[in-house]
Design a protein around this nucleic acid. Structure first.
Lengths: 129, 129
DNA sequence: TGTACATTTGCACTTATAAGCAAATGAAAA
DNA sequence: TTTTCATTTGCTTATAAGTGCAAATGTACA
């Protein structure tokens, strides 16, 4: 039971929902710096939330050189699928801004690979909420 | 967005998941005392969680004389439906004990109505976890 | 109208969670 | 082998959340 509650707890934070949304929308693994740029949230905050999501077994981590990537963990379990579904059922209007910035950021990839780091090292978490 | 996060936050607590599970399984409104008996959690704890669930617009409240009833709020929104789905997708083995006690308690209804209060006023929350 | 019973609420306490900053780690390239 | 850059981690602080108990509320019935 605890593993289920742990996953559900992860859903109770807006930043984590936004992070998961980017991964669902990208339908691909995302570099930490890409998430930071898309969401305009400080990199250390993103990093900590990614750690929690990984800890709850919702996402997978992988490293490629300097960059660290995360993606939704594949699962056939109805419960895990429903976690994705519930995020997908949040009306897009609440996430449209993130989605646009994400797309912009993904367009900067070369050969489908992340080649730059964080665009603005001084971004702050409170530009938009 | 806040209303969505508020609902999701509600899912991050085991006691609230167990409460919602009883309502889903009963497929009917439940008296507070019935929930208390089914879950073996102190009545004031149940009461507080019910308040939160109601506050998040997940459940509805209604009073009939001495008794107060709660039930899952009807909704056609995909998000709200997914909340129910995600709880339904927790394997029954984790909730079987609650389900059995709930059934026992529901069998004590007369003409489909709750007629008794809390069976054991001194129940404590930590008998099973 | 007062007594009993179901439920809620206020307060105290403890534990969990989130964010910010600075320092640390890890890997690549100069 | 030093520098650079991406990311993580430790520490601190502020705030939220859950529980327990006692007192309060609200309703029915004697």
């Amino acid at each position: 039971m605890k593993t289920y509650i742990k996953k559900l707890k992860c859903l109770g934070d807006e930043n984590r929902i936004r992070i998961l949304n980017t991964m669902i929308k990208a339908n691909d693994k995302l570099c930490v710096c890409e998430i930071v740029d898309a969401l305009n949230i400080p990199f250390y905050t993103i990093s900590k939330h990614l750690k929690e999501l990984k800890n709850a077994d919702i996402i997978d981590e992988s490293r490629e050189g300097k960059f660290v990537f995360y993606q939704i963990k594949e699962s056939e379990k109805p419960f895990d699928k429903n976690i994705i579904e519930i995020i997908k059922s949040i009306p897009e209007s609440y996430l449209i801004n993130d989605n646009i910035l994400l797309q912009k950021r993904l367009n900067m990839r070369e050969d489908g690979k992340c080649v730059i780091g964080i665009t603005d090292k001084n971004q702050c978490s409170c530009k938009e909420s």
